[in-house]
Design a protein around this nucleic acid. Structure first.
Lengths: 260, 260
DNA sequence: ACGATTTTGTTCCCGCGTTCACAAGCTCCT
DNA sequence: AGGAGCTTGTGAACGCGGGAACAAAATCGT
């Protein structure tokens, strides 16, 4: 939640990130007219999943769905889904279900993807290339406004429809384009320095693909995506499954050489 | 956070850990009585983080570290770190700390990355290319044994030191190389079908980069990495930071056919 | 040898998140 | 109109994970 938390979620399970969530944002809490907006982190991490499921349903022509339907499409418990949605408001109709388009819009508005956010990708290696070309970004409430890299050989290279610019333009780009999310796809050694520059330039959200811990001041959100850590988590369970019996999986090439 | 995991085998859920797990020394574990090695999922998700921090410390020449040191390097609370490590056994020395090399080996052994696991990547688009070239895999207990793709144009293409093979070789490769982890980097539409084939071929762990939910039978683990979902989670917090947002947008033309 | 110091391993408590179960509310049929 | 049948929204129980505090153990100094 996150995960790792994600998945801390996060990941939940996922990559757990430390978050400081003010339960009551306002200093005064005196029966505000608006419902308390303190949405739990675990719920926030699932809202995008619901949103995608709703988009899929809409594309298939579904107009209305029950919590059971949507929960199935999102891979969660229907009770959890209903409670999650209840944090946003009462957007369903008892006895009927949810209007797909209406709920889709409400979730998108709550997440804040109704207007596109500017994203800069720093580090245009293999992963940076993949991220720059990933269509899911532009179609889901984000627009990539800059690709930055430190390698002079990559300067000016065209990726997708964008030209790679030098890392020295970082501050300029952030200011001019109003970048609010920085995506770190640099080597581990460079991540902290780039992160510091992003934060200093005013970026308050960072998605970190570099296999290292980046420290940021309070008020800045960092989410970490780490491929080898995900693999190692799978390896643990794989390891445990194989420990029980030696029959199901015969790996001629891999021998267990564990000894203490 | 990553999405749910299907019910795994009989995970010893006993809250009252009957005994601190004795070090699994050379003595054969009887396998008679349950083997209560139920390490919490949250701890399992952090073990790779500790492992990486230890490797970094070792590379810097550190021989010994306290829980405070390691916790700082891993970005967690020292109390949490100690509790996590206590699930593995008593590998520290009171008044002294942990031997970096020894603890590194113990964690690696617990995760199961002392022997390399065979990994197959399916879907060699932009992301698949990046994953195939990612050095972190081979250096951390995994070896990529196959790159598979359905596009005839990509067949035979060299990526890194490997040749892209056809998707029809999936079953063969899984059997011959003993693939235990499949990495899904296909388009969303193909993910479920490929997943089914992987599972049928005997793969019991899947790392899913496709932006869709894949269903697997019990006993198979799936971890999901979703770039746009991570971005949307950041977007939510970004959205909230810009407090006092007017959110002036009124309901779009999407009619609400039901109710209200 | 023995106490002071340091650091681990563990226990206890608290808060969050998940899930069950049910009341509230909407629609449809008779 | 009124009851039957659904489905949402929510109150409450509960289990898990996190963090502080403490007891156990190992080294160091005298």
């Amino acid at each position: 939640m996150s995960s790792a938390r994600a998945a801390r979620g996060t990941q939940g399970v996922g990559p757990g990130e430390e978050r400081t969530r003010p339960v009551t944002s306002g200093a005064v809490d005196g029966a505000e007219t608006v419902a308390p907006r303190g949405i739990p982190d675990a719920t926030v991490a699932r809202l995008p999943v619901y949103l995608r499921a709703l988009v899929n349903l809409a594309e298939r022509g579904t107009r209305t769905c029950s919590s059971e339907d949507l929960a199935g499409a999102a891979g969660v418990n229907s009770s959890k889904l209903r409670k999650d949605l209840s944090y946003l408001g009462s957007y369903g109709t008892r006895g009927v279900g949810y209007d797909v388009e209406y709920l889709r819009y409400q979730i998108a508005r709550e997440i804040g993807v109704t207007q596109d956010l500017a994203v800069a990708i720093i580090g245009i290696g293999n992963l940076g290339h993949a991220l720059a070309n990933y269509a899911g970004f532009s179609s889901r409430g984000f627009r990539i406004v800059a690709l930055l890299d430190n390698d002079p050989d990559r300067l000016g290279e065209e990726v997708g429809a964008m030209r790679i610019r030098g890392l020295d333009e970082l501050e300029t780009v952030v200011a001019e384009e109003g970048v609010s999310i920085g995506v770190l796809a640099t080597p581990a050694a460079a991540a902290q320095a780039v992160s510091d520059r992003l934060v200093a330039a005013g970026v308050t959200s960072i998605l970190n693909f570099a296999p290292t811990l980046v420290s940021v001041p309070a008020g800045v959100d960092v989410r970490k995506v780490d491929l080898s850590i995900e693999l190692q988590i799978l390896a643990y369970h794989e390891h445990r499954k194989a420990a029980g019996d030696g029959s199901s999986d015969v790996h001629p090439s891999t021998r267990t050489t564990v000894g203490v």
